[in-house]
Nucleic acid binder design. Structure first.
Lengths: 172, 172
DNA sequence: ACGAATGTACAACGATCGTTTTACATTGCA
DNA sequence: TGCAATGTAAAACGATCGTTGTACATTCGT
């Protein structure tokens, strides 16, 4: 019941935006009364935070990989499943101007974890730490995600190819 | 008077989001009555479209360059002046789910122009067309813009360095 | 000097916002 | 069997939304 709410909320927030999605649309999609929604979620902002935390779990599980190439392969899968609408975390933070603490915190936690993971994958793939290279890979990942909004999923393969070149150069 | 409105609106939309910014906050910041705002702008959505068109002009003027390196130098200047809040175009489109025609159209026009410009710069710099390389440069640009939201302006120099490597490799 | 244009302040429009209240039905454990 | 717990529907809360109407002041070209 709680998971149905979270799933429905994620879909609506992702497709129409956090602010633009009213509570009545959430209750309708989740098939529950507003009373029950508030008992479960506390508030709309807490619901969004819950959505983000849940999405973070799903996303981070998908990028549990050992190579940079697999990182972008995972992103290809992700956009195939989730579509190309940019990063929900950055979008919801931007929508609220960072003024909603629950949301800002969930986003910060996710982006910290993501940054750490990229660093780890680059280190594993390369055999040594390389923070500068990791930052470039992160930029390619984020760029593929956002450019895909108007350029389509091809941006992910472009980023993948670019990352391969950077990795190859760092190895030799 | 119209330009003061547009400037004030851009600032508020950029910092707090399109939906979250009410008309009364716009009138207050622009120092005019709501009646006058609507005479000038027509509607809130049209005002946002005007803001985006104006921003497109300012942005495109800044990336009138001849080399890929200068492209990222221009982005460094841009984020120094405008801050790191991601791409206003993609954000406003996402906020409205693409359901507001005036906004969706302004965004589409800007992104088309931007994509074309990147292709031109890569071609000039390289001496020949290279659409695949241009796509990678575009991904780096977009990635620097969005990663900068949580990683800071350093992402731009990371992207700049990565682009230099890709360009060098394409030249030899 | 005068009428059109353009500005203002301000109340009000109906709609919708997030949230809570009221009153009632169903379930499950003691 | 009965009392919590948990659900429902529906109305209402005050606030705010984008937008418009009313009534009055200022500026400006002729």
């Amino acid at each position: 019941m709680t998971s149905k709410l979270t799933a429905a909320a994620e879909r609506l927030f992702d497709r129409h935006g956090y602010v633009a999605t009213g509570v009545d649309r959430l209750t309708e999609a989740a098939g529950m009364s507003s009373r029950t929604l508030y008992k479960h979620a506390g508030s709309k902002a807490e619901l969004m935070a819950r959505v983000l935390t849940e999405r973070d779990r799903r996303f981070m599980a998908r990028i549990e990989v050992r190579t940079v190439d697999a990182l972008f392969a995972a992103l290809e899968d992700w956009v195939r499943v989730e579509g190309c609408r940019g990063c929900l975390f950055l979008r919801s933070r931007a929508e609220t101007g960072g003024d909603t603490p629950e949301i800002a915190e969930a986003v910060a936690l996710h982006k910290e974890a993501f940054h750490r993971r990229v660093g780890e994958v680059v280190a594993m793939d390369l055999g040594r730490e390389d923070p500068a290279l990791a930052e470039q890979v992160l930029v390619l990942f984020e760029g593929a995600t956002h450019a895909a909004v108007y350029r389509g999923a091809q941006t992910v393969s472009a980023a993948r190819a670019a990352a391969a070149i950077l990795m190859e150069r760092a190895r030799s």
